[in-house]
């Protein structure tokens, strides 16, 4: 068992928001109950239409996306998806996204008394309409404000998901913690772009998108390490994880659990393999996760097989 501020996971493997939908399609391929937690797609107060295609582009060892947080809204989630997810015993984490502080607060209020939600994950990598489109996640004051607004309306574990598009991730993480976050998750996608050299036009219709996949792993790992070094708060690491060795890196850097996004789009079955391989590694090395989590930060290097 891994305990994240009261959120109990039977293993460290979670899905990453936006890459596993609301579970229906993935459930055909993967036993959701064998996961540590299931994180749903970013969900807003009203339905969001999303961006025009082309929405994805490939890059060296990664991909860019500009889905635009298309989702059917929290009402649809409550009436259609949550009942489906309640059939499973896996802890369900709802990723919420808003365009104003009020929207975040209202989302938390709507979800508060719903059965079958283990935690909220607050996605702050979204333009703040009121502040001229600057992302909430790039301003420590706004991160704190959003976190407080959700905290006031939510008693269960509260995760704040950080944007990597900042100069000082520790400052942002501290703001979320001060606002009442129980757990931090990171990283969301890095802003990037690709150009079609046959025309000079950006590949994505929106021009700029979010980079994910193995290409971002070293950046994600560094940020987890920095937060684990500076702040006392449980972390969920993600960004480019493809193998159980990648998971171990994140855990050694200080993550108590990890989320898998892009890799699930390529090979959904790897989720189950990761769970199995990690457990095998842990048992064959005779260690407990508490010993592994953050060992690089503590400098307690070992000899593992």
């Amino acid at each position: 068992m891994i305990n994240l501020a009261g959120l109990e996971l039977k293993n460290p493997i979670m899905t990453a928001s936006g890459t596993a939908g609301y579970g229906r399609e993935l459930a055909n391929l993967v036993d959701l109950d064998s996961l540590g937690a299931f994180v749903v797609k970013g969900t807003s107060l009203e339905p969001w239409v999303g961006n025009p295609p082309i929405r994805v582009a490939e890059t060296a060892s990664g991909m860019l996306n500009s889905i635009g947080l298309q989702n059917p809204g929290v009402g649809h989630f409550i009436s259609y998806d949550l009942p489906f997810l309640r059939q499973f015993s896996v802890p369900v984490i709802v990723n919420i996204v808003g365009r104003s502080v009020d929207e975040y607060a209202l989302l938390a209020k709507r979800l508060k008394d719903m059965e079958g939600i283990a935690a909220l994950e607050v996605n702050v990598s979204c333009p703040n309409v009121k502040e001229g489109g600057l992302s909430f996640g790039q301003d420590p004051l706004l991160v704190k404000e959003v976190t407080e607004a959700v905290r006031e309306n939510w008693d269960k574990p509260l995760i704040v998901k950080l944007s990597p598009n900042v100069t000082n991730i520790v400052e942002i993480g501290r703001a979320a913690k001060e606002g009442g976050a129980d757990v931090l998750s990171l990283i969301n996608t890095l802003r990037g772009m690709a150009i079609d050299t046959n025309s000079g036009r950006p590949v994505l219709a929106q021009g700029i998108g979010g980079l994910s996949g193995p290409a971002i792993k070293p950046v994600a790992l560094r940020m987890v390490f920095e937060l684990a070094s500076e702040l006392d708060i449980p972390l969920i690491g993600m960004g480019g994880i493809q193998s159980y060795r990648d998971v171990l890196e994140f855990m050694m850097a200080g993550a108590s659990a990890v989320a898998i996004g892009t890799a699930v789009l390529r090979t959904p079955g790897m989720l189950i393999e990761l769970v199995r391989e990690l457990e095998y590694w842990r048992l064959s090395n005779g260690v407990a996760w508490e010993d592994i989590i953050g060992l690089t930060v503590r400098g307690e290097y070992g000899e593992f097989r």
Partner: peptide
């Protein structure tokens, strides 16, 4: 035909414009 990622309906990469919003080509 549209560019795809997951192919199973989870990622919303393969959007095609509908009279209201978008549909998924893959699903």
């Amino acid at each position: 035909e549209e560019r795809m990622a997951c192919g199973i309906g989870t990622c919303l990469a393969c959007a095609i414009k509908a009279p209201e919003g978008y549909l998924r080509v893959c699903k």
